[in-house]
Amino acid sequence: MSKHRVIPGFGLSLGFTLTYLSLIILIPLAALFLKAGGLGPAEWWRILSTPRVLAAAKLTFGASAAAAAVSAGVGLLVTWVLVRYRFPGRRLLDAMVDLPFALPTAVAGITLTSIYAPNGWIGHYLAGWGIQGAYSPFGVFIALTFIGFPFVVRTVQPVMEDLGVEFEEAAATLGAGRLTVFWRVILPALTPALVTGFTLAFARAIGEYGSVIFISGNLPMKTEILPLLIVSQLEQYKYREAAVIAAAMLLVSFALLFLINLLQRHLDWHKR
């Protein structure tokens, strides 16, 4: 590494970046872990082993995983259609995919609730089949899918656009049918991007608050998610409980993300 840098501004920009990063992100997060870490394992166990926390954790991670999986499926279909086919309204549709990114979560929350409530546009059909849309774990899943699916489309789309058609042509000249080409050539090439999209959707869903709290109904033990549990602890000025739940939640999501990252590397290792 050379001491002399040709492009100037390294010291200034690195200094500013590190200072700002520390003040806004690192020190506050460190404060959280210090607060939670200072309490000792017994206290952690006491707080985390309550049935209410466990139920909320199960719902949060379970619904997030289910929502991210469904997002991956629906996202793959939508990406395929947007990339491969030309039809009227395609550009509009492409732009619309980002709506969940741009629509504030509180707005998403109240509209999804109004649609999936038992008297809502979709909710009353669901009610006809005996399915409760809003105010149920299913409602949580719906909100998280809404939030997550653009992540899948936006990560898979560039990869699919770059996927040279010659791989499919090669497979076709070798006698493979369209379905075989999809399963054996296209899907494996898209898998790393799909896993990334799944991971982003999953990570976002675990922490999601605004769009969920309206549609979930927030019944402890039934439809309460972890972020809401943190808020309710805070509202009772139970800082310790809030800090421990938050720290545990962060640790579990970091561990999950790390594992998926490893899997990703395994999938990706044969790519340049």
Partner: peptide, 16 residues
């Protein structure tokens, strides 16, 4: 293409 019995080699190989 798949039933013609042609062997096709692509410029950039197109290996999977």
């Amino acid at each position: 293409a798949g039933k013609r019995g042609v062997g096709f080699v692509f410029q950039h190989y197109a290996l999977f």
